[in-house]
């Protein structure tokens, strides 16, 4: 992609609003060291979002977008759910797939990009909720891992189908009651991070989004490993504050509480992945 499309013509610069000039002058495009510390100063990928006030998923999206090492050549594939409400607001190539098909669509995009642009690094990242990743899209998700597709899959786990009114999902915790699951879930939460490992992912992480720096590290590692080795999987806890009855300012506390139990930080990497991560660290990109 050419960065020239962001260069404002000198002759017309004085007529551009300050915020647009800031977008050009403070943009982090082309800088692989970009990260969450740039968030207060840059907004070229996302400014406003359309999620609920205080939604942890919106925090996750900001941290992820700030952490992409190569946003100008990144394609995001998303699926139906709260996340899909944000994508019209972000300045990245995004593809909205049919519900559950996101990993199949991403596989195709990655293969075509490798064929079409053999000399360029193009990252394909899947962002989808727990329903799309683990329930409705389980087949497509796992098959992409089995086929060793070089894509990064990020699951926003809010442990419920929140967007449609509160039905239980495979990732709902046993016993949890929701509006459309009044008897409480009768089965255990699917440990999908473990299934991802068993299915051939080379880098897997499980965490909440309570720590922006940690999210940045994990996302960068997952993307660098996916580029060179094979599929990677990041499982993020992004609770739906509405569905679990919390106030707008309670999301962070909820995540911090889960940091100490079922979403304690967990990271797995294969030896090939470790090699890539160590090399990237030496290059100062992590």
């Amino acid at each position: 992609m050419s960065y020239k499309i962001y260069d404002i013509n000198e002759d017309l610069k004085e007529f551009m609003p300050k915020e647009i000039i800031d977008l050009e002058e403070r943009a982090t495009w082309g800088n692989p060291k970009r990260g969450v510390m740039d968030l207060p100063y840059t907004k070229e990928l996302i400014e406003e979002h359309s999620l609920c006030a205080g939604c942890p998923e919106s925090m996750a999206l900001r941290y992820i977008l700030a952490s992409l090492p190569n946003p100008e050549d990144t394609i995001i594939v998303n699926s139906t759910g709260c996340t899909s409400l944000v994508f019209p607001h972000i300045a990245l190539h995004t593809v909205h797939s049919l519900f559950g098909n996101q990993n199949a669509v991403a596989s195709g995009i990655k293969r075509v990009l490798e064929w079409r642009f053999p000399d360029k690094v193009k990252d394909v990242v899947v962002l989808a909720g727990d329903g799309a990743t683990v329930d409705i899209g389980l087949d497509c998700t796992l098959q992409s891992f089995f086929r060793q597709e070089k894509i990064t899959t990020i699951c926003f786990d809010n442990e419920v189908y929140a967007n449609t009114g509160g039905q239980e999902s495979g990732l709902t915790v046993k016993g949890h009651v929701f509006k459309m699951a009044p008897k409480g879930k009768q089965w255990d939460k699917v440990p999908f991070w473990q299934i991802a490992i068993d299915s051939g992912c080379h880098y897997v992480a499980r965490l909440t989004v309570s720590s922006p720096k940690k999210v940045e590290q994990v996302i960068k590692k997952a993307i660098y490993v996916a580029r060179e080795v094979g599929p990677t999987y990041v499982h993020l806890y992004t609770p739906c504050i509405l569905e679990i009855g919390l106030n707008s300012d309670d999301g962070l506390d909820e995540m911090r509480a889960r940091d100490k139990e079922r979403f304690s930080f967990f990271e797995y990497m294969t030896p090939q992945a470790e090699e890539v991560i160590n090399r990237v660290k030496e290059e100062g990109l992590l």
């Binding site: 499309i5 260069d7 013509n9 000198e10």
Partner: peptide
Amino acid sequence: FPGPQVLYAWN
């Protein structure tokens, strides 16, 4: 009203 095709120095 200049649009993006003249506002940005893309060629």
